[in-house]
Structures are given as structure tokens and as C-alpha cells.
């Protein structure tokens, strides 16, 4: 059997190949500004890549570790608020502030995980919805951080350190590429490490995992911390990008779904699922809302719904699994 001869290094070979493909995709994305000059399209690409990073952050907890969180807007919002408050009130530049936002986001993911990871399956997902809503309501009524009217980030001057770019969108593009790249490489490293194996074991069968000395609760907590931290950083970048934040735009339940959806659509627990999913979903969302205006805000949700149903029925492993159709399944006899 060919599989056994090549089998010796099959995992390493696959990982090396993924890394090469990753570098090619990275190079391709970096060259985009040379081709795409139109500001509207650039804007669309920036959002798509940002969401690819966010979805990868979600995927680390929801995909690899199997803990489906529908409250990630909380960590996103916290990251956004922390970096924005540090910038607006204390003048600390967002290049530092986003890491503070990530840190606090990760910390909150641990705080949420501490009670919620005692629940399993659907109950965990429901708990995260509730926690996300609580966070949204608290921020909505917290005057110190602007309450429902939000915070405006004043534009002072063009600055790399303070992430203030008005002349061109290109720096944003490179920033979100760096962000999504970071999320991707973290996922890649985890996938090949002891943690990755433990987390996937926890996802597949908790009882069997425990019997093999996998510490289940710490595994979930570690996944949550990394996921929450990356999501917080993404929130900080988004806040700086749009220049204005309020609880409705960055902490609503809709956003939690929008963070999770690309990964689900593209392929849960895969390296490329989040990017593939956002490349389809985010342009769809932006185009539908710009063509249909605010009256179309319900319609994009209907489109998501239809997509989810379609994927769930036809390819439960996500769009990325379509690639597998061209390959002979290795287990076939």
C-alpha cells in the first residue's frame, strides 16, 4: 500500500505544504494594492481579511477545541473599548492599545470560561449567548465609556504608531493581513502541537480524551484565552479602522454570529475554512447592505440562513472539504 510507504512523514508533509500555500496566499494578498486601486473594493477586502482573522480566532476555540461560542462579540467589543479608551483618554497609541485590548479580551474569555466550560455542548453555546448579551447591555448603560452614544475617535494626524491613516487605505490592508496572518500561523502552530491534539480529542470525545491523560478543563481554558485574545486585538483594529464605536455596532449578538459564521461556512476546525468562508460571506454582506440599504438589513440575515442550511445539508465539513473531492479518500479500499 502506497499510504504506508509515504505514511511515515505524511503529517509533516501535509503541514509543510500548508505552510507553503500559506506563504503563497500571504504574498498574493500583499500584492493586492498593486491591482486594486478602487477605494470601495479596498475597503471590502480589508473587512474580509479582518473577518478571516476574527473567524480564525473563533475557530481556535470553536473549531479545534469544539467549544461553540456565540458570544465572541464580547471579547471583540472589550478589545475595541480598551484600546479606544486608552487612546482617547490617556493618549496611549493603539499599536500598544490593541495588545492591551487583546490581553483584556483573553482575560474575559477565561472569566467566561471558568463557569461556562462546566457546561457541555449546546448548553455551553447558550451560556455564551447570554454572557454576550449581558456584556452588550452593561456597555450600553455605562456612561464612562460613552454608553449608547459610543465613542468617537478623533482624527489628529496621519500616524503609523497611532494607526491613523486617511490618505490611503493601503496601510489598513497590510495591518489586517498581518493580523489574519498572525491568527493563521498561531492556528498552524497549535495544529501541530500537543495542545492541538488534546483540543481535537476534547472536541471528538471527552471521555476518551480524559482516559488518555488529556486535561479537559485546562485545554478549554487555554483555547479560550488564545481565542479571546486574538478576537480582542481584532476588535481594537476594527475600532481604529472605523473611527467610531458603540455597543450596537461592535457588541451585538449579530456580530457574534458574524464572527463564527465564516469558519462554519468555510470549514470548522480547518486552517483555511475561516478565510474561504469570509471571502464568500463578507462581500456578500457588504454588497447586500450597500445595494439594499438599511431595508436590506434583514435580507442579508436571510442569505446567511440559507447558506448555513445549504452547507449543513450538502457539505457539513464546510466549503474547504470540496477540495477533498478531487482527491481519492485515503481510507478508501
Amino acid at each position: 500500500m502506497a499510504g504506508s510507504i509515504l505514511g511515515h512523514n505524511s503529517i509533516q508533509r501535509r503541514r509543510r505544504l500548508e505552510l507553503i500555500v500559506g506563504l503563497i496566499v500571504l504574498a498574493g494578498l500583499c500584492l493586492l494594492p498593486l491591482v486594486v486601486k478602487d477605494v470601495y473594493t479596498q475597503n471590502l477586502i480589508i473587512l474580509t481579511i479582518l473577518y478571516a482573522g476574527l473567524a480564525q480566532a473563533w475557530n481556535i476555540l470553536g473549531g479545534y477545541c469544539g467549544q461553540v461560542s456565540l458570544g465572541h462579540a464580547l471579547y471583540f467589543g472589550i478589545g475595541a473599548y480598551v484600546s479606544t479608551m486608552l487612546y482617547v483618554k490617556l493618549g496611549i497609541p493603539p499599536t500598544l492599545g490593541m495588545f492591551a485590548g487583546g490581553l483584556v479580551g483573553g482575560l474575559f474569555a477565561l472569566l467566561v470560561g471558568w463557569p461556562c466550560f462546566r457546561l457541555s455542548g449546546h448548553y455551553y453555546a447558550i451560556a455564551t449567548v447570554v454572557v454576550g448579551e449581558i456584556g452588550y447591555l452593561l456597555f450600553l448603560n455605562w456612561d464612562f465609556i460613552g454608553g449608547a452614544s459610543g465613542i468617537n475617535i478623533p482624527f489628529k494626524h496621519e500616524s503609523l504608531v497611532e494607526l491613523q491613516f486617511r490618505v490611503t487605505k493601503v496601510p489598513w490592508l497590510y495591518l489586517v493581513i498581518a493580523y489574519a496572518g498572525l491568527a493563521w500561523i498561531i492556528a498552524w502552530i497549535i495544529e501541530g502541537s500537543r495542545w492541538g491534539y488534546s483540543w481535537r480529542a476534547v472536541k471528538d470525545d471527552v471521555t476518551a480524551a480524559r482516559s488518555l491523560a488529556v486535561r479537559v478543563f485546562p485545554s478549554k481554558m487555554a483555547a479560550a484565552a488564545i481565542s479571546g485574545c486574538l478576537t480582542g486585538i481584532g476588535g481594537a483594529i476594527f475600532a481604529q479602522f472605523v473611527g467610531y464605536i458603540d455597543p450596537d455596532s461592535i457588541m451585538s449578538g449579530n456580530l457574534s454570529i458574524l464572527i463564527a459564521l465564516p469558519a462554519v461556512l468555510g470549514g470548522v476546525g480547518t486552517l483555511w475554512g475561516p478565510l474561504v468562508g469570509s471571502a464568500l460571506l463578507i462581500p456578500l454582506k457588504e454588497l447586500s447592505s450597500s445595494y439594499l440599504g438599511s431595508s436590506g438589513s434583514g435580507l442579508d440575515l436571510m442569505i446567511y440562513g440559507a447558506l448555513i442550511v445549504l452547507i449543513a445539508l450538502a457539505r457539513p465539513q464546510g466549503l474547504i472539504s470540496l477540495l477533498g473531492l478531487f482527491r481519492k479518500p485515503e481510507g478508501a479500499r
Binding site: 491534539y197 488534546s198 481535537r200 480529542a201 472536541k203 470525545d205 476518551a208 488518555l212
Partner: peptide
């Protein structure tokens, strides 16, 4: 069994 993993990956969980 850990059904999202290959046979080798299943056993690696134990080896870890």
C-alpha cells in the same frame, strides 16, 4: 474513537 482524526493522530493523542 476521535473521528475527526486519522488513525495515527488518534494514537498520538495517547502518546502525548
Amino acid at each position: 474513537s476521535f473521528d475527526s482524526m486519522t488513525v495515527l493522530e488518534n494514537v498520538m493523542v495517547g502518546a502525548f
